[in-house]
Amino acid sequence: MMCLDAAQTASVLPFDRLADALAEVLAKKRRGEVFAPPRLHMPLPGGVLLVMPATDHHLLMVKRITVHPGNPGQGAPAIQGEVTVSDAATGKPLFELHGPTVTARRTAALSLLAARLLAPNPQGPLLVVGAGVQARTHALAFHEGLGVKTCRLFSRTPAKAEALAQSLRQAGLDARAVEARELPGVIAASPLVVTATTATEPVVPDRVRDDAFLAAVGSFSPRAAEIPAGLVRRAQVYVDDLTAAQAEAGDLIRAGADFGRITPLEDVADGAVGRPEAGGGPVLFKSVGHALFDLAAARLAMAML
Rank of each mutant, 00 (worst) to 15 (best):
Phe259Val: 04
Ala298Met: 00
Leu4Asn: 01
Val237Pro: 06
Arg105Pro: 00
Leu126Arg: 08
Lys286Met: 10
Ala171Gly: 10
Glu226Trp: 00
Arg17Ile: 03
Pro43Trp: 10
Thr263His: 14
Asn71Arg: 12
Ala278Phe: 03
Ala180Arg: 15
Arg233Met: 07
Arg234His: 05
Ala244Ile: 01
Gly70Pro: 06
Pro282Ile: 06
Leu40Tyr: 05
Ala175Ser: 14
Ala188Asp: 05
Val232Gln: 13
Gly73Asp: 14
Ala19Phe: 01
Gly289Glu: 04
Leu153Asn: 08
Ile65Met: 03
Leu231Val: 11
Ala244Cys: 11
Asp174Arg: 03
Pro14Glu: 14
Ala291Cys: 07
His58Asn: 14
Ala196Arg: 03
Gln170Leu: 13
Ala135Asn: 08
Gln166Tyr: 05
Leu173Asp: 09
His143Ser: 12
Leu140Glu: 10
Met302Ile: 03
Pro264Thr: 03
Lys286Gly: 02
Arg207Asp: 15
Arg181Pro: 01
Leu113Gly: 02
Met42Thr: 15
Val102Cys: 01
Thr107Gln: 09
Arg156Asp: 12
Gly99Ala: 06
Pro191Gly: 10
Ala249Ile: 06
Ala272Trp: 14
Thr90Asn: 07
Leu140Trp: 02
Val186Arg: 10
Leu18Trp: 00
Ala104Met: 04
Gly289Gln: 05
Leu305His: 12
Leu164Phe: 11
Thr101Trp: 00
Leu26Cys: 09
Arg64Leu: 02
Gly279Thr: 05
Gly256Met: 06
Gly32His: 07
Gly73Tyr: 05
Leu22Cys: 02
Ala171Val: 09
Leu118Gly: 00
Leu300Met: 04
Ile79Val: 15
Arg31Met: 00
Phe259Tyr: 13
Gly99Leu: 02
Leu110Val: 03
Leu173Thr: 08
Leu22Gly: 01
Val83Gly: 00
Ala104Gln: 06
His143Asn: 10
Met61Tyr: 02
Gly289Pro: 02
Phe285Ile: 04
Ala36Gly: 04
Ala291Pro: 03
Phe154Asp: 11
Met61Phe: 01
Ala196Pro: 07
Ala188Pro: 05
Leu140Asp: 06
Ala255Phe: 04
Thr55Cys: 11
Ala88Gln: 10
Leu192Glu: 13
Arg31Gln: 13
Ala115Asp: 14
Lys28Met: 15
Ala109Pro: 06
Met1Arg: 14
Ala278His: 12
Pro184Thr: 06
Arg176Asp: 08
Glu266Ile: 01
Ala297His: 01
Gly46Ile: 01
Val25Cys: 06
Glu248Arg: 12
Thr150Asp: 14
Asp240Met: 12
Phe293Pro: 00
Ser219Cys: 09
His58Leu: 07
Val25Asn: 03
Asp20Ser: 12
Val129Met: 08
Ala115Asn: 12
Phe259Pro: 13
Asp258Met: 05
Ala165Asn: 05
Phe293Gly: 01
Gly70Asn: 15
Met52Gln: 11
His57Cys: 10
Arg223Asn: 14
Val128Phe: 11
Glu182Asn: 13
Glu226His: 10
Val273Ile: 15
Phe95Leu: 11
Gly256Arg: 09
Arg30Pro: 06
Gly99His: 02
Gly274Arg: 14
Leu242Gln: 00
Ala19Lys: 04
Ala247Gly: 07
Asp267Ser: 15
Ala225Met: 11
Val237Asp: 13
Ala165Thr: 04
